[in-house]
Design a protein around this nucleic acid. Structure first.
Length: 728
RNA sequence: GGGCGAAUAGCUCAGCGGUAGAGCGCCUGCUUUACACGCAGGAUGUCGGGGGUUCGAGACCCUCUUCGCCCACCA
């Protein structure tokens, strides 16, 4: 509908702008107290204003109906200084007796609140500004044509000269600026086109309440609701060049015809005027957000009923920034519900805002934009992309951190080097995994199980829009599991040129290539460049030209999942780590060949360790490994490391510092004992054993048993070390 | 005035009812033939304060403090 009301007018760009494009800025200004005399009386009323120039357009002064100070003056007239116009004193609850003098000047044509007061009291609207915010001919001659800020100075001076200026106070106030033009916007009375947004918004609120569209993270719904439920009429016309021209035609007498086409409008107009009539099209264009609101269906061929529209509307997900919720998301909802009678998207993912290093929002007009090309120059495209994804946590903004980008650049490098290793060691095309399932060795089955886990985790996180978690799952799998364990585990097999090891070598090659190939597909959306490059190089059969055309890894990996194997394999890893810890603590160096004894009380554990003897020897760099049920026969001069299920003993000969060893064991005993006491106290608490879930209680009991076993071993070792220390 | 979010290791941040974590930084040792953008090992926390719920609380509830943001208003 067309209406004459106040709009937020940009006097530089000469157009109405949206409330959302208005940016309040805090400015130091003044409070001017002005005295308006009551006609034919000695009395007067003092009003306070931050914009004295608007007094030229005053058409009333309002006081609160219950304000005893002014009750007797309501209905009387004031003489407006400098102008001489008689203006009424009206009673209106808009006036707040607590604020200022309790009397407020009313300028209906230049203030939104005053406009409403004016409507209630049938006050005239006096437009004192033109489109440039210069004073019009409706003001005394002395001020005509003056710019608003020039006029302000002049008027204050003249009021002072006339004795109407009571006092001036310093005052800090919020002044509305146009966010594009950077000038103070002016509430201005114009004819504009409006949408009845309140009516359009109702089904949109209902749709989100019913969950037909869901916000992720959910709390943004509140922002959406708050705005939708307090929505104002939407001024959709703009006095600018670019945009969809409004389909409205005016006849000579100002009658308006709104039709889809000019032809249609002319037909209606001719009928209306009963003769062929010249029409003039409205030169205004639609607010850009009006046009954008049509996007979800207009791009699919609407208003035609196209197959695309049937297939893709409603869309699955809109990914956008929170500051677009009002501008675009809400408006697409309105038009979707109105024109399609269906929501435009099922999910709205509100992503984090990337802020600059100081935490400020980046903006083109502020100029504090981090240039991605520069970051890419320094760290690489894939590193930047991975960093953004890794930092994209729900409900939290991103401060782009150079350190994090550097860390992920190292990750990209790691992927490159791991693949380089594989390409160096794997010769010829590899066989499909299915053909060698029976020949897989423990480490092979372990990494395939971990891969299946990683794929499942990544997919789950992506489904939930948890991008940072998805990135982390990729990172941990590739670096901590594939590189740090699997590649190290298979090195010996890959480098073995003996005929006897040929089959084992081939299996390792196939598994390594298969795992890498799957990892490339898994990471491709985040790191498109390196994954494409490496995928092209892998010795595999390629069914498509590009990795992007391949299927994303999914459920087909699930057959490899093997939690029991992973659990038992953790024992082997903890044994290797224990030996490495002794190496580091005793300064044995990473490469010096040493002997080690692993004591495991459990027969199944020993069996598993025996099977993995070669891996343990290789990764712990041992020259001799004994796996036994008890400590019997182990030398006294030994460093030990005790874990939940095993004790690792490294004979040290004269190298061992017994006092230090005893002290180290004493510290571990103290910590273990403290944990045991804590758990025992917990288990002694009847309230806990009665009320906590059975599995929690059982787990705690098992843990106490483990700790008790550890303590026996630790105390035994401690006693021996202490005896030796005193002997020497 | 209304609303939202945040406070956890030196830094950037996960965890959101059952033994406090990651990356970076820091410390120790390493030319280990994929990688020093690396490898192995290590240290580091009254989880902002105070109440409460619970067998059990960074986690849930209340409250306070401090930061950040959004909306409205400001004669």
């Amino acid at each position: 509908y067309r209406d004459k009301r106040l709009v937020t007018w940009d006097p530089k760009l000469h157009t109405a702008i949206s409330d959302l494009e208005v940016e309040p800025r805090e400015v130091k200004g003044h409070f001017w107290h002005l005295r308006y005399p009551v006609e034919n009386s000695n009395e007067s009323i003092v009003v306070a204003t931050t914009r004295p120039e608007t007094m030229l357009g005053d058409t009333a002064v309002a006081v609160h109906p219950d304000d005893e100070r002014y009750k007797h003056l309501v209905g009387k007239l004031l003489v407006l200084p400098l102008v001489g116009r008689r203006i009424p004193i009206v009673a209106d609850t808009y006036s707040d007796p607590e604020k200022g003098t309790g009397a407020v000047k009313i300028t209906p044509a230049h203030d939104f609140n005053d406009f409403e007061v004016g409507k209630r009291h049938n006050l005239p609207l006096i437009n004192i500004f033109d489109m440039n915010a210069k004073l019009t001919n409706d003001v005394p001659e002395a001020y005509r044509g003056l710019d608003r800020f020039v006029a302000r100075k002049q008027i204050v001076a003249d009021l002072e000269a006339a004795g109407a200026l009571v006092k001036v106070e310093d005052h800090t106030l919020q002044v509305p600026y146009g966010d594009r033009s950077g000038v103070v916007i002016e509430p201005w009375l114009t004819d504009q086109w409006y949408l009845d947004a309140a009516t359009l918004s109702k089904p949109c609120v209902a749709a989100v309440e019913a969950g037909r569209t869901q916000f992720v993270p959910k709390h943004w719904e509140k922002t959406y609701f708050e705005w939708m439920k307090n929505i104002q009429p939407w001024c959709i016309s703009r006095q600018i060049w670019w945009g969809h021209q409004i389909p409205a035609w005016f006849g000579p007498d100002g009658t308006c015809f709104v039709e889809e086409t000019e032809e249609q409008a002319r037909k209606i107009a001719d009928a209306h005027y009963k003769q062929p009539t010249q029409l003039r099209r409205d030169t205004d264009v639609l607010d850009t957000w009006f046009s954008s609101a049509l996007w979800p269906f207009s791009t699919l061929g609407w208003p035609e009923k196209t197959p695309e529209l049937a297939r893709y509307y409603p869309t699955s997900v809109l990914i956008t920034s929170f500051d677009i919720i009002f501008f675009w998301v809400a408006r697409m909802m309105m038009f979707g519900m109105h024109f399609m009678n269906e929501v435009p998207f099922k999910d709205v993912y509100i992503h984090a805002l990337v802020r600059d290093e100081h935490g400020n929002k980046m903006s083109k007009s502020k100029g504090n934009v981090v240039d991605p090309l520069q970051v890419i120059e320094e760290h690489g495209t894939d590193a930047l992309r991975f960093t953004l994804i890794a930092l994209a946590l729900q409900g939290r903004d991103i401060r782009l951190s150079a350190d994090r980008i550097g860390g992920y650049r190292a990750f990209v490098n790691k992927i490159w080097n791991a693949s380089r290793f594989a390409l160096m060691r794997v010769t010829g095309n590899v066989a499909p995994l299915s053909s060698m399932q029976a020949k897989l060795e423990e480490p092979d089955r372990w990494i395939l199980s971990r891969l299946a886990n990683a794929v499942a985790d990544v997919r789950k996180h992506l489904d939930e829009y948890k991008f940072a978690e998805a990135a982390n799952a990729m990172y941990v799998f590739v670096w901590d599991e594939l590189c740090d364990w699997y590649i190290e585990l298979v090195k010996a097999r890959l480098m073995n040129e003996d005929a006897a090891g040929a089959r084992s070598k081939q299996v390792a090659e196939s598994v390594l290539v298969h795992v890498l190939e799957t990892a490339m597909r898994l990471m491709h959306p985040v790191m498109p460049f390196i994954t494409e490059e490496l995928w092209q190089k892998l010795p595999i059969e390629r069914s498509t030209a590009f990795i992007a055309q391949q299927k994303y890894p999914g459920d087909e990996l699930a057959v490899w999942r093997n939690p029991a194997l992973e659990n038992s394999y953790a024992l082997v890893q903890s044994g290797i780590s224990a030996i490495r810890t002794i190496r580091a603590e005793k300064n044995l160096g990473p490469t010096r060949p040493i002997d080690a004894i692993i004591v495991a009380a459990n027969a199944d554990d020993r069996k598993l360790l025996e099977e993995q003897r070669a891996s343990i020897i290789a990764l712990a760099r041992l020259q001799k490994l004994d796996i036994q049920a008890s400590r019997a026969g182990a030398p006294e001069e030994a460093a030990t490391k005790v874990t939940d299920r095993l004790e690792v003993i490294v004979p040290m000969g004269d190298l061992l510092d017994y006092a230090a060893e005893a002290a180290k064991l004493a510290r571990q005993i103290e910590k273990t004992e403290a944990e045991r006491v804590k758990l025992t106290t917990k288990l002694d608490n009847k309230a806990f054993t009665d009320r906590a879930p059975a599995d929690v209680v059982a787990r705690e009991r098992a843990r106490v048993t483990e700790l008790e076993q550890m303590l026996v071993t630790l105390r035994d070792g401690h006693k021996r070390a202490e005896q030796r220390a005193t002997k020497t």
